[in-house]
Design a protein around this nucleic acid. Structure first.
Length: 281
DNA sequence: AAAATTTCCAACCGCAGCAAT
DNA sequence: TATTGCTGCGGTTGGAAATTT
């Protein structure tokens, strides 16, 4: 037996909402709340609408503090960065942008931001002072292909990237964001590019901070890592663990990001200090 | 000015996950 | 454990508005 429909489809109005319907819904929710039941709400509010439709209208349009209009450059950056990190999980992305709805962001990405990114018009965020610009369509395509899809829930443990060595593949000028999924919250993370011998590009990220960096170095590539809700992401490690075949079959070019646990980072710092003391004696 | 095409976004649809029974 | 009902999410679409031909 199939599931019963949530409402009587034949007796329900569809399509754009009229101002009268809006005001009925708004008044009802502001007076009585949703009652925790959207299905029965339309009847109580005197609306010939499906409960789901009411919920959507309220969340995306009527509820207070909804921000309409142009997205700022900062918002662009957050969306691009998070999309590259977690894929099209719009509700999570929306949670980082107060006043914006998941629907809004999804529409914005699909109609405008993707194109902006392709044209290299979006500045990416970084904790370094260097300004980086997202390159062309290849990046966007790669991000879209490889970013995690909704409901893909990584379930493997964190492995320090520094235990592995990788060579860049292919001859493409661009690489892709590489994140390691981590189940255990980490307090901070140091990111370096192994091809950058002088370590002139590095970042230390704190929880909820997002680093996203397009390098225009000799090797060309993207070096990025991110925290989301205390979890560290690395796309490449995810793929390797999923495929269980190392670099084999990996169709793309990349630059590795080294991620270290904070403890490891602090130990190294301590070592450096001790060595410095010894050398001054 | 009119027709054709493209852009944009509000709203719909179906599915997954969860809680209650 | 299986079933049912509901919510929330992301993909998709219809059609109005804007732009181009």
């Amino acid at each position: 037996m199939g599931r019963a429909p949530c409402c009587d489809k034949a007796n329900v109005k569809k399509g754009p909402w009229s101002p009268e319907e809006d005001s009925k819904l708004k008044h009802h929710i502001e007076t009585y709340g949703t009652g925790g039941n959207w299905i029965s709400l339309p009847q109580k509010a005197g609306l010939r609408r499906c409960g789901k439709s009411c919920r959507l209208r309220w969340l995306n349009y009527l509820r207070p503090n909804i921000k309409h209009g142009e997205f700022s450059a900062e918002e662009d950056t957050v969306i691009c960065t998070l999309f590259a990190t977690i894929g099209s999980r719009w509700s999570i992305i929306a949670a980082q942008l107060p006043g914006r709805t998941d629907n809004d962001i999804k529409n914005y990405w699909n109609t405008k931001l993707k194109k902006k990114l392709m044209m290299g018009m979006v500045s990416s965020s970084s904790t370094t002072n260097t300004t980086h610009y997202a390159p062309q369509a290849e990046i966007v395509k790669t991000i879209e292909t490889l970013s995690p899809k909704p409901h893909q829930n990584p379930s493997f443990d964190y492995q320090p990237l520094s235990n592995n060595s990788y060579e860049p593949l292919g001859s493409a000028n661009y690489s892709i964001p590489l994140f390691n999924y981590c189940n255990n919250p980490i307090s901070s993370c140091l990111v370096t590019n192994p091809f950058d011998q002088n370590n002139s590009f590095y970042e230390t990220l704190k929880p909820n901070q997002v680093g996203f960096e397009f390098d225009e170095l000799e090797y060309g590539g993207l070096n990025s890592v991110s925290f989301n809700n205390g979890l560290l992401f690395d796309e490449k490690m995810k793929m390797m663990q999923q495929n269980n075949n190392g670099n084999e079959g990996y169709n793309g070019n990349y630059v590795e990001g080294n991620a270290m646990m904070k403890e490891e980072e602090e130990m190294m710092e301590q070592k450096r200090e001790e060595e410095a003391k010894r050398s001054t004696k």
